[in-house]
Amino acid sequence: MSLFSTANHSGIPSGSKNSMRRITNSLGIFLFLLPGLVIFLIFVIYPIFRSIYFSTFDWNGLGPAVDNVGIQNYKDILTDKVFLKSIINVLIIIVLSLGIQLPLALLLATLVGRDLPGRAVYRTIFFLPYVLSEVNAAIMWMLLFNADPERGLLNGILVALNLQPVGWLSDMKVVLFSVFIALTWKYFGFHMLLYLTGLQNIPTEIEEAACIDGANSFQSFFHITLPLLSSTIKTSVYMSVLGSIQQFILVWIMTKGGPVNASETMATYMYRFGFVRFDLGYGSAVAIIMFIFCVVFSLIYQQLTREPDYLTGL
């Protein structure tokens, strides 16, 4: 009744005024969204459907696509050992990211988020790699990882310490971890920033109260900071997993997915077939499979991490 009366202050019959307002309102929203929607449809939705269309062709990108092969591309991809290897590599990168990269970012965030002297300087330093272009970062790490001790810093240090040089990018057992080191260096600053903003939203009163109650800093961290950061952590895990699935630039520049597919990711696999072997139909099919992976992960993740909403009872 109160809603009704506030809407009825101008004296016009309330029912028709309400519905008219609703129409003009939604029309306004629609018109405002229109330019963005058009761009989104042209540059996101349309290419996705084109990719689905091309993924059913054996097509090298020159001239029109005519050789329709149905789902053969998908069959070939899912039975290709190299593609399965790339999925395993992506899973390894995801596990390492969640197990090492994110905890590291959280640790640093709690350090530089508090009363560390000169914390603004540290924050900037830690965030710097994320601002750097990925290509620059990749080339820099290639130089550091160079196998020649006289040209690569890391092997230079190892040799100076009388240790065996490591084939950072040439040893098929090591290369994925070398790539992971570069990935961690590049992206931990981003996650640290997420955690920093999360930490700022935690009221200091709660921590003070815990402190007064005699909680030590470990207890305070695990029982107060961590639970209150949970929504930030969820976001950061989500972005980390999606980023790992789509990881391309660093890997491609540093190793091209090699040696012999040892550091292949799904994205480098897609590029190899789409743009190195000019099999754009096959490459499109890989892209669609990656897209499905990302969508399925997103849906499952949202289901799993949905907070029970006590108000609506869902």
Partner: peptide, 12 residues
């Protein structure tokens, strides 16, 4: 071949 030839670039 040289150490690390499997990961070496043409420039290397």
């Amino acid at each position: 071949f040289q150490e690390g030839f499997l990961g070496a670039t043409h420039d290397d």
